[in-house]
Amino acid sequence: MGLDKPPNRPVKTADTIFGIVEFLLESGGSGVKEIAESQDLAQSTVHSHLATLLDHEYVVKEGTTYRLSLKFLDHGMEIRERLRLTRASQRIIEELSDDTGEVVWVVVEEHGQALYLLKSSGENAVQTRGRVGRRTTMHDIAAGKAILAHLPDSTVDDIIESFGLPERTEKTITEREALYQELKKIRDQGYATNDGETTEKVRAVASAVLFEGEVCGAVGIAGPKHRLTGKKFHDSIPSKILEAVDTIELNLEYW
């Protein structure tokens, strides 16, 4: 299993529309002139594509500014709710966040990146880099490493080739061989840790969720370094996550 390969003959019109959509997402909204300049297109071409997106309700026009509509939210929420992993884990991560007081994430792999699928915040939860729907590299977060540990080596190689191993902090794994050693350790102990590899003052613990012999995601807990210390970081939090994952995997069998 490797990363999905792009088609040999991409459709130019589709490329143009998705380029406009991505720019509107990054900019938060722009006028025709700015969009045309960013995409190296004629303003008349941009206007035609925007008219199509507007007609299908994928953009909203406010004066001379176009922005993406909440129709994308509707699609994303519907897709998420259809996933078996969502239904099997939602209640479990809520119980886990209540128990630990920290933020709990369910993360999945899509197109070689980690995607934050679900979040549940305990009473002491702190804000981290993650947000539901966000995509990020896999090698520097606990949940991403937990997933990588259960993917074929060929897929891991493809992911590294596509996204590299960028350094987030001084503790980030940036060498391929070091990553493979870490993944073996994760398989042996059953969970992954992140000791300041993404953000210096944040630690996390995560374990992969397996279904029918394949990894379908991971559950992770993140919190400030001063709270996730000693036995809590290396024993009690991993134990709670492993228990939660066992329940989720059981739910997947009957959902």
Rank of each mutant, 00 (worst) to 15 (best):
P224F: 06
P224S: 08
A222T: 00
R67W: 01
V106Q: 03
T16F: 06
A88Y: 00
T13Q: 07
I221H: 02
Q39G: 00
L148K: 02
T199I: 12
T45Q: 14
D140T: 13
K171A: 14
Y58G: 00
I17S: 03
L73P: 07
T45E: 14
E182M: 13
L85P: 03
E243C: 05
D40K: 12
R9A: 10
F211A: 14
F18D: 12
E102C: 08
L210R: 15
A36E: 07
L165N: 03
V245G: 06
A222C: 00
I93G: 00
G164L: 06
Q181F: 10
V104N: 01
E253V: 11
Q43K: 14
G230L: 09
D15H: 11
S120R: 05
T199E: 10
F211S: 15
L3G: 03
G63T: 03
H75Y: 12
R203G: 07
D15S: 11
I93N: 01
V205S: 00
V156Y: 02
P152I: 14
A192F: 08
I186R: 12
L115P: 04
G223R: 06
P152W: 11
E197M: 03
R176V: 12
V106P: 02
I20R: 04
D246R: 14
A222S: 10
E62C: 05
T172N: 08
E175N: 13
L252M: 09
A204P: 05
G28A: 02
A218R: 05
L53W: 09
K5S: 05
Y254R: 14
A142K: 06
E214N: 14
I221E: 02
V60C: 06
G133D: 01
V126G: 06
D74W: 04
F72E: 01
P6H: 04
F18M: 14
S154E: 14
T65Y: 07
H234E: 03
D4F: 12
Y180K: 09
E175T: 11
V32P: 05
L151T: 10
L148G: 08
Y254E: 11
V103Y: 00
M1N: 13
H150W: 10
V215C: 09
H139M: 03
L151C: 09
L183G: 08
Q127D: 07
W255P: 04
E170Q: 11
G217P: 03
G2K: 11
K232H: 04
I17L: 08
D246K: 15
G76E: 10
S120H: 04
P10C: 01
V202T: 09
G230C: 03
G63V: 01
R82V: 09
